[in-house]
């Protein structure tokens, strides 16, 4: 993996912050484009791993996963540069526009644009799954696990944090049992 300068890390995360519209999950396709594909600061597997683990630690997911990606790119200072870059946009937006923002919210055009953005976020999410699928769901065991988790998330309101911890336990037990069989 390449090491990057702090200014470069800050800049990239600043750009990502500007494009982060329509909810935190958009961070995954953005990191895939800017960090994995264009700069190779981390691998696709690492992106998926950090995304999963960011769900079960405290904090805002987009923030946590940026700290992880920043660390990959440039150690602890890289993490600082990444999170500073990411939060610069909200800062600038709110400090400059605080007084007019509340009147903008009710604007008809803005409402219509965000109605459209919510639909494009759905498409972004499915494209991201398609990208990450090959490295994540590639055996009988992972297929079954995916289906089980998917159904339980759709049919109940179970917390993602619990799901992630459970699937880690299931996979550990499965690997143990599998090894036991091979040794026997």
């Amino acid at each position: 993996m390449k090491k990057a300068s702090l200014i470069e890390i800050f800049k990239v995360f600043f750009i990502i912050g500007i494009q982060l519209l329509g909810g935190g999950y958009v961070i995954v396709p953005l990191l895939k484009k800017y960090i994995v594909d264009e700069r190779q600061w981390m691998s696709e597997e690492e992106l998926v791993d950090y995304f999963a683990m960011s769900q079960c630690i405290p904090g805002i997911i987009a923030g946590n996963i940026s700290v992880c990606a920043g660390y990959r790119a440039g150690g602890i200072l890289g993490s600082l540069a990444a999170i500073s870059g990411l939060i610069s946009t909200p800062f600038i937006t709110i400090l400059i526009l605080a007084n007019i923002l509340s009147s903008v919210v009710d604007n008809k055009i803005i409402q219509e644009a965000f109605w459209g953005i919510r639909i494009s976020v759905i498409i972004l999410i499915f494209i991201t799954i398609k990208d990450l699928w090959k490295k994540s769901v590639n055996s009988k065991f992972t297929y079954i696990l995916f289906l089980l988790i998917f159904l339980s998330l759709i049919l109940s309101n179970i917390s993602p944090a619990i799901i992630i911890v459970l699937s880690a336990i299931i996979a550990s037990v499965y690997t143990k049992l599998n090894k036991g069989e091979k040794n026997a």
């Binding site: 998926v48 791993d49 990450l132 996979a171």
Partner: peptide, 25 residues
């Protein structure tokens, strides 16, 4: 082996969010 479970879980999480948003829209 933990990651073996985490990766499909991450995909399933994204997929369920996508489906829920799609259903709502």
């Amino acid at each position: 082996s933990v990651f073996l479970g985490l990766r499909p879980a991450a995909c399933a999480l994204l997929a369920s969010i996508g489906i829920k948003l799609l259903y709502k829209t």
